[in-house]
Every structure is written in structure tokens, then in C-alpha cells.
Design a protein around this nucleic acid. Sequence first.
DNA 1: AATGAATGAGATTTCATTCAT
DNA 2: TATGAATGAAATCTCATTCAT
Lengths: 193, 193, 193, 193
Amino acid sequence: MNLRDKIIQSSLDLISTEGYHAVSVNKIVSVANTSKGGFYHHFSSKNEVLFEIHDVFITYALKKAREADKLNKSPTKRIIKILDEFVHVFDLYQAHLSVFYQEAFNLDDEYEKIIKEKRNAFKSIISSVLYDGIKAGEFRQDLNIDLTTMAILGMVNWMYKWYDPNGKNTISEISNFYIDFIMHSVLVDVKTL
Amino acid sequence: MNLRDKIIQSSLDLISTEGYHAVSVNKIVSVANTSKGGFYHHFSSKNEVLFEIHDVFITYALKKAREADKLNKSPTKRIIKILDEFVHVFDLYQAHLSVFYQEAFNLDDEYEKIIKEKRNAFKSIISSVLYDGIKAGEFRQDLNIDLTTMAILGMVNWMYKWYDPNGKNTISEISNFYIDFIMHSVLVDVKTL
Amino acid sequence: MNLRDKIIQSSLDLISTEGYHAVSVNKIVSVANTSKGGFYHHFSSKNEVLFEIHDVFITYALKKAREADKLNKSPTKRIIKILDEFVHVFDLYQAHLSVFYQEAFNLDDEYEKIIKEKRNAFKSIISSVLYDGIKAGEFRQDLNIDLTTMAILGMVNWMYKWYDPNGKNTISEISNFYIDFIMHSVLVDVKTL
Amino acid sequence: MNLRDKIIQSSLDLISTEGYHAVSVNKIVSVANTSKGGFYHHFSSKNEVLFEIHDVFITYALKKAREADKLNKSPTKRIIKILDEFVHVFDLYQAHLSVFYQEAFNLDDEYEKIIKEKRNAFKSIISSVLYDGIKAGEFRQDLNIDLTTMAILGMVNWMYKWYDPNGKNTISEISNFYIDFIMHSVLVDVKTL
DNA sequence: AATGAATGAGATTTCATTCAT
DNA sequence: TATGAATGAAATCTCATTCAT
């Protein structure tokens, strides 16, 4: 593991548990076993590290959502796949997610802009599969797409506040639960599930 | 409006838009048109102001939920009332809610403990109405109470990230949407809705 | 006990244990069960209270030393009486003494001047009885008066660092010890003791 | 002279004349010609500097007392050597001593503990040479060891209040005076001096 | 005589960042 | 690549004192 990655990993561990402002560059370099010089050789600022953490995660989540979305399947099957991938991301990127949802507003403007775009792209994938489902007659015609999108995102995103890999339910159980819960509200005919 | 309230209001405005750490006591007293001495005469620390903001909100939300819960009605009617009150809180306490969900982890231990208790009490109200609904045969028998509680909370809480009083949908529309969305997933027979 | 005395007493208790700077006017008024207004009604400043504590003590000590010195007795008997009174003051004014020797340098110039004069007057009494004793042939001819004065003062004053009314030795035992110790060094013929 | 030493020296000069609380970090860095950052790069707190000053002095004094004590000589010769070294310390470490006796109670607990131990070790050396002298028949059998120890310490320590290197008496004259004064009170037979 | 809200200067400490090596 | 001493702006909080009531 090279120094750059060691710094990112240490920052991630610290920021996800203590928060961006509570973590000083001093603490990071001490945990990463390097020096101030080492840090600033690889990053132009503490904020850049925060950006890296955001970017790694959203890039991965977006890629997974796009892959799921591109499968030539019915909207129902596509949204189920998207949700399944989405929920599983919370298992793979737990620490990143805490940072992503808790510290995003600390990003400098230039970084925030980049992240925001990717986040909107992610949201659009969900909106458009809902749109396709309604058009295809699989989803309820009276569905408010915007509100449904936000409800789904909220429900799943909130996991960052409580999901525990060692908790009562496995990530797959949680995924299945969410899919069931959402599809009940979205599908015209639940029996097709 | 006395100085104490003016300080809380200024703090709320600033923290909800800029974040706890970005807001200095200097900024607060400048906006509240007082002095550092004035600030520390009324509060023992900046953190105490943060606590006040949390406490005012959660105390109100909890009170409303308890009132809704105590109505002698069926679990279906009770959960609908609870959800309706809950969603409307986001209209009345928008700024408080941003602070509540974004800055809670900045509370000092002593304050955090108090808030945590009230938050858990709130969660329990939802869990137990779900329990009652299942027992009464109104809600689906296979419902996972814990996950359903978290799904509902997540869905609604997430509003703090996007709800805009001047946005496309009124708070009542949003409330109705959430009730419809959730009840579809929870009820045994949606036609009873 | 009137408010003024209650304030002095509370200040004395606090300053003697915690030190002048560690004791705020807030603490004093809280212990004295009064208010800022009450405090500043009776004293023009916190420093004036410090002065009062100094003055009460040095005025008493000086009075006792003068009384002992004025007895028409031999230098030997006079110095023994002076020492005995001096040591006993440490029992009566323990808290005052801690403040006197620990906090004198915190006195404002105007107050310091007054205290310094009384302190010098006290020292002069000892110097002059030593002088009389040497002249009378009772004390050693080769005695350096200044150094002997400082040695005696140091020895006794140091008690403020260690004297404990509940300790191994009573105040009278300590007094007798000091008298014996000093007289051995001072007298021409110890057998006359 | 490196920055760390320059900070200690400036602190020593300032604290010994103005007192710990009257000296701000601002003043120190201004005299030491550095910045607050420079100060806190080398010390974790203002209190740590105070500790350094205490420790340098007591470590030296203790070392000298131990060396004097370890000489294979009679108790009489040993105590004379200890006293001589002790008094001379007041010439070498005048500023340190003012701080040591005036500001020790301002040390944080962790630091105070360390200093206290060394101070007690120093006191024990005097107590035990007195013990040896009594046992050897050189010192008076009726000597109260504890009180004698405190008398000797007080007498010499008090010098921190008055000793002036440019004063009437040289440090060697003062040392000889104290030795003579103390030995007169301690020895069985003064003629052996 | 007594209150306590309000002041504002100043205290200690933190921290991201720079730079000579 | 990497170091760590040094910076200085800014943070939170304290405190003796004032003053309208």
C-alpha cells in the first residue's frame, strides 16, 4: 500500500468516526505514519482528501447503477437490480457512505460541483426507470416520480445512520426487504412480483 | 424578543445553513447584535446552544407523536395520523431539522444522551403502532418491524435534505404521498385505505 | 455576620486554597451567597479584598510584636516572647498567612506600599531586639543582625507551607522548638536559657 | 540557542518577575521573538513550560544534595557540605527558585506529582543526615528531626524572597552564616565546629 | 443596599498550510 | 519523496467591572 492510499485510508477511518472537523491533519499523518510534508506532497489540501473519499464512492455507485440500468430487461427487473446493487454498496463502502452523507457540505465549491453532478446522475437513473415502468404499465399510473425517487433514496440512504454489518439482518435480507417494501408501493399488480 | 432567544434564533439560522463548525461564536454574536460576554452570560458553551436547538425540536415532535398515538383509533388510523404530524413538522421546524440530522454528532456527551433518549422514544412509538397493526390483522403478518420502522423514518427524515417550502409540492401533498406509499407496503388489504 | 464580612471570609477561604487568580468574583459571590452588585457595593475591586486580608493579618501580627517588645524585660526574654507570639499567629491566622505569603505580589501598587511598610516595621522589631541583645552582652557579639533576622523570619514564615493544626506537633510545641533552636544560635551562654 | 531554549529562558525571566498568571503566552512569544505556533510546536501548554522550569532546578538541587550526601564523611561534615551546596544553588538558579517557591501550586496535577516526589527526596536527605548525626552522637539527642528539617529548609528557602547577588553579603558569606547558625543549634558540642 | 444582564478585552489553544532542507 | 519546524489567523471561553433598575 503506497503512502497516498495509506493517507486516504487513515483519513477515511478517522473522518467516518470522528467527523471532518474533528480530524486534524496532524492526526491523519500520525495514524498514517507519515509527516506533514508527506501529506502535502500527495494532496494539496485536507479538503482534497475529503473529495477523494466522496469521488471513489459515488463513482463506484454510479457505475453499478448504470450497469444495472443497461441490462435489457423490464423496468421492474431493472429497478430491482438497481436497488439490490444500491443496498449492497452500503456493505462495501460503509465508511465512505458515512462521510458522503455527513460531510458533503464541507467540500470546497469546486469539488462539490463535481460530486453533485454524479449524484444527480445517480438520481436520474432511478427517476427514469420509474418513468419507464409507468409508461410500460408495470408501475402505478398515479405515481409521483419525484417524490417516489426521494422516498426510495431516503429510505436506503438512511441506512448510513444505522446499518451494522454485525447486526440482526444480513445485507441481503435488508436488500430483499427494501425491494419488497418499495415494489408493494410501486407495482400495479403486486402478484407479479 | 429577549437576548437569549435572539441568540438561539441567530445560531439556528447560521448553523442550519453553514454548519456547526463553520459558525463561530463571533459570527453568532455579530448577527444577534450582542457581545461574547452576552453570549456566555446566557449559555455555558456554544454546544449548549446546539443542544437547545435539538431539544426544542425533538420535544415538539415527540409530543405530537404521543398525542397522535394516544387517540383511541385503529392502528391504521393511528399510523396515518402519526405520519401526517411527522411530515408537517418538517414544514414548521425546517431549520431545526437540518441541524438535528446534520449536527447531532457534534453534541457533547451529556447533551447527546438526553437527545438520544427522546429520539428512541419517538422511534418506539412507530415500532409499537406497527406491532399493534400486525396483531390486529390490519398490517401484513410478515412485516419486519425493525426494518419497516427504519424505512419509514429514513424516507421521511431524508426530507431534511430536499424539502423546500416553495417547491413543487405542498407539505400536505407530500404527507399524503408518504402515507399512500407506506400504507401500500404495510396494509394487508390496500382497498381498505 | 454582615455581607461585607461574609465576602471577606468567603474570599479568604477560596483564595487561601485555590490562589488569587483561580478565584473569580463570580465564585466569591456564589459562596458568599450574594451578587456582583453586592460585591461591588462593598468593595471597589477584587484587589481591595485581597488587601483587606493582608491588612487584617499584618496589623494583628505587628500589634502583638509591639506589645511583646514593649515589655520591660531583657532582650532574651523579649525575643522569646516575640517568637512565641509570632508562632502562635500561624495558628490563629492560618488562611490569612497562606494568602499573605503567596499572593502579596498580586497587590496593586497603592495597597502593596501600605503592606510593605507594616511588614518592614515588623522586621525592624526583630532586628532591634537582636541589636539590644548583642549590646547587652546576652547575644553573640559576632552575630550578623540582618542575616539572623532573615533566618528567623524564614524559619517561622515557612510554616505557612507545612503547618497543620491537626499535625504531629501542637502549636506550642512548635513554638518551644523554634525558641530553643534559635536561642542556641543566638545566646552567648546557652545554659542561661 | 534553539527556539525551545529561548522560549524557556524568556518564560523564566518573565514569570520570575511578574508571576505565572501575569505572563501571557503572547508576552512570552513576543520576548522570545517567535509566534504562538512556534510556542505550541515545542510545548503542549503554558503549564508545561512552568514544569520545565521547576524540573530543571529541582533535578539539579537533588543531584547536588545526593553527591554531598554520598561522600564518606561524618554526619557533621555531610550536613555542612549539603547546606553549602544548597545555599549556593540560590546563586546559580535565582530566577528558577522564585518560580519554584512562588508558582508550584499552579502546576497541573500530573506535573505537580513529579515535582513533589523530587522535593520529598530532597527533604529526606536532610532528615536522614540529621538522623545519622543523632545516632552517631554528634547531634543533640533531643532534636526533633521533622521540625529541625523544616526549620532548616525554611531558613534557606526563604532566601528566594530576599537574596540579591549584588547585596551586602556574598553567597559564600551567607552560606557560612547559615552553617554556623544551624550547627550551633544542632551540635552537641559546638567547640568541635 | 442589592441585583444580574451586559460588556469587551484578552486568555489559552488549535490548526491547515508553507518552506528550507 | 519526505521531513518537521515555524507560522499566524482564528477558535472558544473567562473575567473584572459597569450600570440601569
